[in-house]
């Protein structure tokens, strides 16, 4: 079966019972995506499929053939971090670092969802064309990513800094 993982075409032979997460971790050596519950309850396994975030632990790998899968390893090259990764360092958006790959992937797709105007449970006006990245919007949308060390404040700061319009304006200037 073929997959496009972090831009590379890969082929793998595996048991049909293999989850996308175990395919990445055990077969492709990409252990950046983490297993925290294997129940779809913690978000540590979050990866991007065609740009959308999913829980790789609940995904049977066979269902994702020929799809573009991006993991934390694909966010950057060593020494040239993604701006969100740098912001996580700056704002101490992690402690043990285990939930971090999932938080990062989730946040990147979350920002894309927001820019597409996908509403959330705390969106007051469902008819609104655009939705601002408020503190509540961010926290609600990231609630599928648990952090037991309790780095939530730092994660929120890092995501805000990276994806808030002010930041984008600064970068554009």
């Amino acid at each position: 079966m073929r997959f496009i993982v972090n831009g590379q075409h890969v082929e793998a032979v595996f048991d049909l019972r293999t989850s996308l997460l175990d395919l990445l971790r055990d077969h492709l050596g990409l252990s950046g995506s983490k297993k925290g519950c294997n129940q779809g309850a913690c978000g540590a396994c979050t990866v991007l499929v065609d740009g959308e975030r999913i829980n790789a632990c609940l995904a049977l790998a066979v269902q994702y053939q020929d799809r573009a899968i991006n993991t934390v390893e694909g966010l950057s090259e060593p020494g040239a971090l993604h701006p969100l990764q740098s912001a996580f360092l700056e704002h101490d958006g992690f402690q043990c670092g285990y939930c971090t790959p999932g938080q990062l992937c989730s946040a990147i797709a979350m920002a894309a969802e927001l820019s597409r105007g996908v509403p959330s449970a705390v969106t007051v006006d469902l008819a609104a064309e655009t939705i601002a990245l408020s503190h509540d919007e961010l926290r609600e949308r990231m609630s599928g990513n648990l952090c037991r060390c309790g780095a939530y404040n730092g994660i929120v700061e890092a995501i805000t800094e990276t994806f808030s319009p002010q930041k984008s304006a600064q970068e554009a200037a």
């Binding site: 252990s31 996580f88 990062l104």
Partner: peptide, 21 residues
């Protein structure tokens, strides 16, 4: 001071106990 193991961890390159090949 920023964590010294930070870059490894945000890069998904820190190998935890179940990740040793």
């Amino acid at each position: 001071v920023t964590r010294m193991d930070g870059a490894l961890k945000v890069g998904g390159r820190a190998r935890f106990a179940a990740e040793v090949p």
